[in-house]
Design a protein around this nucleic acid. Sequence first.
DNA 1: TGCGTTGTTTCACC
DNA 2: CGGTGAAACAACGC
Length: 285
Amino acid sequence: MPELPEVETIRRLVELHLVHRTLDSVEVRLPKLLRGSPFASLDPLLGRSITGARRRAKILIVDWSGDVSLLVHFKLSGQLAIEPAGGGRIVAGHPVPDPNGPYPHTSTHVIFGFADGIIMYVSDVRQFGWLRLMPTAHAVDVVESFGFGPEAVGHDSIELDDMAARLARRRIAIKTALLNQQVMAGLGNIYVDEALHRAAIHPGRPANTLRAPELARLHAAISWSLERGIEQGGAKIIHNRAYPQDGFPQVHGRAGEPCVTCATPISKTRVGARGTYYCHRCQPE
DNA sequence: TGCGTTGTTTCACC
DNA sequence: CGGTGAAACAACGC
């Protein structure tokens, strides 16, 4: 479930709490999560400190002293929790299991122990995520090898004309096109539903049939939905229901709840085999 | 208990 | 080569 806003939230937490902290211990309880990693363990990080955290698409890049970088993909259910020196716990990413319960738990797979007693937990209920450790010089190449399109939000995000050109050569459903990270990078199943609702476009519309005003609305709506998500520190969807009530997300996970625009009950359907929420009145075929 | 779940890859094909 | 559509895959909770 972590999409761009959740990963960006995690990135900011790492930057805020962990930069310049030295790693005293690391325990990888589920080594298979290092799948595809050039280094088979995280031990090379011991004694090093975090120098910064970057993000490209839904990939987090944590840079360490000694010019090594840790790439993390949270996939469906990855989560990061930090217990700062002063106590308490800050959690971002997937909201399950209960962030207020005891840690580590059965889905906690990597535990980082930093100086001053700061602890960072990487948890993943579905175990679909991965971590890859590599020289920093390789990190950008590895990320580029995924062929991501421009970022969907931010200072260097995709421009309207570029987005229009990319969509013009596809006749697949607009929702499916927007989920393709090579078209643009960052949207997932939650925020794509939010953006299409905001832009009043039916998720099944062939991408190449959108007209100029619709493309302009969509471009603005994509930024809007991702920015709202970042502001809020990510979306909270538990068992296909959105929280808090009457909050954001406004559409995804809200089947049967009233549309914020017209009060029509939100519908649930499938587009490209993905659960899709929309308002059949605001977003006609 | 088999189904639902999503981000991503793979594959056959045009 | 690039787009399409469908299937597959990861593994768990309910």
